[in-house]
């Protein structure tokens, strides 16, 4: 009896801790999101009433995010970079998955470690090392051949390369995990039924991998969209959204328009994360 009530108290304490943790987790997000609707020029208390001006306002000083050209262009560049990075890294990630699950070659473990490595290199260092290499090549070409290679100067191309360099590890791991669960009998059956190798790949193996490829693509897109450390060093005049927002936060006093963007991104990434989980869940039920 004493033990039971002690257990109850213990479980109650445990649950209280859990609740406190989730409050801690949600507090900054709620704060960042809520002030988007405050009818005030500053993201702070007191509450001045509800407004949607920080989304749809057309005039200064309450210029809404959908009319703020710099924020919109940041959003656009982030989107373009995210799509490019996620597509590229899913393609290479799928190829890597086949290489490490199906292939047999000397030094496989060593190369597998090499594949994981980018994940444990600080993003800042990936950024500077790629910046240094690209600038060296560009400077060399300029000095020796008098050739200006524009795309090796900081800009979208380098940002894509920098983010791709470590996001590919993430996509590779997600797709590899799925390919390991593949039942070879399915391919053999298709081969026995007279399908060619390519047909088997297209109609059996790739459809099996599709949920993992979609999930990896979404994860890659989100990581790219939110990346700051690597991007910071490689960015040119076309700033993605995180850089634009950081500049405003650090240099200019922030108005609730940043909260509007935050709200928009919290909802957007929450929805995408939910899709990833749902896509992945399908596979465990079948």
């Amino acid at each position: 009896m004493a033990i039971a009530s002690q257990n109850k108290a213990y479980l109650f304490g445990y649950r209280a801790y859990l609740v406190a943790f989730f409050v801690f987790l949600a507090a900054p997000l709620v704060a960042a999101g809520t002030f988007a609707f405050n009818d005030s020029l500053f993201p702070a208390l007191p509450w001045q009433g509800f407004t949607l001006d920080w989304f749809f306002g057309t005039t200064e000083p309450k210029l809404g995010m959908f009319y703020d050209r710099r924020l919109l262009s940041g959003l656009y560049y982030s989107f373009v970079i995210g799509i490019l990075v996620s597509t590229l890294s899913v393609v290479v990630g799928t190829s890597n998955a086949f290489l490490f699950v199906r292939g047999n070659f000397p030094g496989k473990n060593f190369f597998y470690i090499l594949m994981i490595l980018p994940l444990v290199i600080p993003g800042v260092i990936l950024g500077i090392s790629i910046l240094v290499l690209a600038s060296n090549i560009a400077n060399g070409a300029e000095d020796a051949l008098n050739l200006e290679i524009e795309f090796l100067r900081p800009g979208i191309f380098l940002v894509v390369l920098g983010q791709f360099s470590f996001i590919t590890t993430i996509t590779s791991l997600v797709i590899t995990a799925r390919l390991r669960k593949f039942d070879y009998a399915m391919e053999e059956a298709a081969l026995n039924l007279g399908a060619s190798r390519f047909q088997v790949l297209r109609t059996v193996t790739l459809p099996f991998l599709r949920p993992a490829m979609i999930a990896a693509g979404i994860v890659g897109f989100l990581v790219s969209f939110e990346n700051f450390n690597t991007t910071l060093f490689l960015v040119g005049s076309e700033s993605p959204l995180t850089i634009t927002m950081f500049d405003r936060m650090a240099k200019v006093g922030s108005t609730p328009v940043l909260n509007a963007v935050s709200f928009f991104l919290i909802i957007g990434s929450g929805a995408l994360a939910l899709i990833t989980v749902l896509v992945q869940r399908d596979k465990s039920s079948d």
């Binding site: 997000l29 989100l222 939110e226 700051f228 935050s262 991104l265 919290i266 990434s269």
Partner: peptide
């Protein structure tokens, strides 16, 4: 929250 940017 894991997928919400550090910045936010």
């Amino acid at each position: 929250p894991l997928w919400v940017s550090d910045l936010i």
